[in-house]
Computed example of a mutant assay.
Amino acid sequence: MSKETFQKITRIIRFDDPTSRRNNCDNFDKFTPIRNLWDKWVELLPMYYNPSECVTLDEQLLGFHGRCSFRQYMPSKPERYGIKFWMLACSKSCYVWNMQPYLGKLPGNQPERNQGQRVVLDLVTGLKGHNVTIDNFFSSFELGQKLLEKNLTMVGTMRKNKRSIPAKLLECKKVPVYTSNFAFTQNTTLVSYIGRKDKCTVVQSTMHHTMSTGDPPKRLLEIIEYYNKTKGGVDTVDKMLSTYSCKRKTNRWPMAVFSNIVDISALNALIVWMSVNKDWVDSQNKGRRKIFLRELGLSLAKPYMEHRKNYTGEIPSRGSGNLVMDNADSQPSGSQPQHPEPPKTRARCHYCVSEKKHHSENKTELTCVMSKKNVCKRNHNRNICIECLDNRKNV
Rank of each mutant, 00 (worst) to 15 (best):
L220D: 01
F85M: 15
F292C: 05
H339C: 12
L298A: 14
I34S: 01
K146P: 03
A347R: 12
P166Q: 10
K84S: 00
Y351H: 10
H209A: 10
E361F: 13
C90S: 01
L123E: 06
K247N: 09
T19C: 00
F137L: 12
C368H: 07
L293I: 07
T312M: 15
Q100Y: 08
L57M: 14
T230H: 15
K231I: 10
Y227C: 05
K174P: 00
G232R: 03
T243F: 13
G126D: 09
D215E: 14
M74H: 00
T236S: 14
P303H: 07
K309N: 12
E387G: 02
L143M: 09
L62S: 08
P46C: 05
Y304V: 12
T56S: 15
R14Y: 00
K84V: 07
K197V: 11
D215Y: 07
S245R: 03
K239C: 12
F31T: 01
Y81Q: 09
Y304E: 07
Q100H: 09
P107T: 09
I315E: 11
F137A: 08
D26Q: 12
K373H: 13
L88M: 13
P316S: 11
I83C: 02
D279T: 13
T10N: 11
D215V: 12
S2H: 10
L88G: 01
R159T: 12
I315C: 09
K77E: 07
N50W: 03
F258V: 02
N36T: 03
N109W: 01
W273G: 02
S164R: 04
R252N: 02
N50L: 14
S212G: 07
Q100T: 00
R14W: 00
D235A: 11
L45Q: 06
N114L: 08
K218Q: 10
N362G: 00
K218T: 08
D135R: 04
C368Y: 07
K105A: 10
M274I: 04
G66E: 06
K150L: 14
N24D: 10
K77N: 05
W273F: 14
Y95W: 06
L44M: 13
C349H: 04
K356F: 09
D135F: 04
